[in-house]
Design a protein around this nucleic acid. Structure first.
Lengths: 120, 120
DNA sequence: CACCTGATTCGACAGTCGTCAACATAGACA
DNA sequence: TGTCTATGTTGACGACTGTCGAATCAGGTG
């Protein structure tokens, strides 16, 4: 969790994981990878945490700013870890606090996946 | 591509469930409703079934066309029921076979939710 | 150094989920 | 009517998940 990752400007494609959804049936492997991201957003607490980070000033927030979602602090940390493992968030420690920020590329890929599916 | 259903011009809002994701932190109730849809797509088998329906001819498919996803037939029926309960699919019996089709409005709402979140 | 605060990890528990075999239901057809 | 095929439902079981308290780690401050 020490990677200061800047925005990837020279990214070849939007997603590392997401083939279009309504073009052709997903293979087992594709579904396995894609389901991880959807599952990460499939919990109310995680959805609130993610939304809190995404809507925060500068697209990043420390844990102390988003911890009031009705569960204990270990649970918050557990959910943030899940979101990070799914590739939706990245964390960085700055002094006392740990800051989380969204991964716009993965998110855009999921959005495009659904949008294209809806237009088909 | 049958033009049975034209684009809904007078549609007040795209979704019955989905507030923007990066505009403001989701409330507990909003997160609860939205998480249901993401959770429905958070399983590999359901994702394959949904993709199979969405990519099928005319946007609909009978169960017999999409049942080869590696699980038993009752499990397929169980997952299709979950997708229907989440509002992502709708079913209709025509004679012997039951046809499933995607709900484009809900899907577009999810896509917009993520796309707007990514652009923020 | 000791102490405090923020955050993660550990260990445990209840609840949910995915899966299947068995059974039930719906329609077609003879 | 009966039988056959296509789906859905039920019940059960193992695995996973969300949750918490307690312990631990990381950094700042006195």
């Amino acid at each position: 969790m020490s990677n200061v990752k800047v925005l990837p400007v020279l990214e070849p494609e939007m997603a590392p994981c997401c083939p279009p959804l309504s073009e052709r049936p997903l293979t087992a492997e594709e579904a396995e990878r894609t389901a991880v991201m959807f599952k990460a957003l499939g919990d109310p607490v995680r959805l609130r945490l993610f939304s809190a980070v995404a809507s925060h000033e500068g697209g990043e927030a420390c844990v102390c700013d988003i911890s009031d979602v009705g569960v204990s602090q270990p649970t918050v940390s557990h959910h943030l870890k899940k979101l990070k493992e799914a590739g939706l968030l990245s964390s960085e420690r700055r002094g006392t606090w740990v800051y989380y920020r969204v991964e716009p590329a993965v998110l855009a890929a999921m959005g495009a996946l659904l949008t294209k599916a809806a237009s088909a």
